[in-house]
């Protein structure tokens, strides 16, 4: 399976470049669009916090920065899953007419959301300067810390895109669930001190908190949880890939 993917790396690149260069072809803001959503969300939360409607606990770094990093990481997962679930159906034209490993499409779509993250990272750096926040030097390990989340995203995308190929409801359910999941995961707020069991059971939270902690403190506060969550993610990825491989032959005729 790995060998097959390696063989088709060029196709992955091409599809990625294609989607990337076509995405904002007829738009004015282009890639800046991926900054609009986080800025709007953070603006709203800052306002809600100031107005006293919600009570956000003290964070280790300026709140807007904290929220931006959290949201950017979250969106690797969210946009990756959203487009991942849709991508097999979206590429139906291709799938029913040309034969190639179908994983290629999902990986190319994942690359898209990673790229969006890189655009947001520019904004994060800008925020560092604005808020005069100096991140720990360990920030160089930051990309490494994101890997488990990416594995999880690809893994879930593989399964969901299959399901979506058979039942189109899947994509709608996914985008709905993601919306609620974001509020149930410590993305825009830190884990509450007195009510942390639920957030510890949500194994997305260490995946998002750990990379952010790394920037804030230079160390991870819950290494065990992060390790468990990472292992789970990789397990999800491997199992889904296997299932995808078994089922992909049934997909073209359902599209």
């Amino acid at each position: 399976m790995f060998q097959e993917l390696f063989q088709f790396r060029e196709l992955i690149c091409r599809l990625f470049i294609r989607d990337f260069s076509a995405k904002y072809k007829q738009s004015l803001l282009g890639n800046l669009w991926s900054l609009v959503m986080p800025l709007a969300a953070i603006g709203t939360f800052v306002y809600l916090g100031r107005a006293g409607i919600i009570n956000i606990q003290q964070t280790q770094m300026p709140y807007p920065l904290y929220a931006l990093i959290g949201l950017s990481i979250w969106q690797i997962f969210a946009t990756g899953l959203n487009s991942g679930a849709n991508c097999l159906v979206g590429a139906g034209d291709l799938i029913t007419k040309v034969s190639f490993p179908r994983e290629v499409i999902i990986i190319a779509s994942m690359a898209q959301s990673v790229l969006e993250f890189l655009v947001k990272f520019v904004l994060i750096v800008a925020f560092f300067l604005i808020f005069r926040f100096c991140p720990s030097w360990k920030i160089i390990f930051f990309p490494l810390m994101l890997l488990p989340l990416m594995f999880l995203t690809v893994g879930l995308s593989l399964i969901l895109s299959l399901l979506n190929g058979v039942m189109r409801d899947t994509a709608n359910v996914v985008s709905l669930l993601l919306m609620f999941l974001m509020f149930l995961t410590p993305v825009l707020y830190p884990i509450p001190v007195n009510n942390h069991l639920f957030f510890e059971l949500n194994f997305l939270s260490p995946l998002i908190n750990a990379p952010r902690d790394l920037i804030a403190f230079g160390h991870i506060r819950q290494p065990v949880l992060f390790f468990i969550a990472s292992s789970l993610s990789i397990l999800v990825f491997l199992v889904s890939w296997r299932i995808f491989h078994l089922a992909e032959t049934k997909i073209p005729e359902r599209l």
Binding site: L11, C13, L15, R18, S21, Q26, L94, V98
Partner: peptide
């Protein structure tokens, strides 16, 4: 197959070719 309507013929030759 895989021609992207928004991209140029030149770009599409590369995409379709690798497909």
């Amino acid at each position: 197959a895989g021609f992207h309507p928004m991209l140029s013929g030149r770009e599409n030759i590369y995409i379709n070719g690798s497909i």
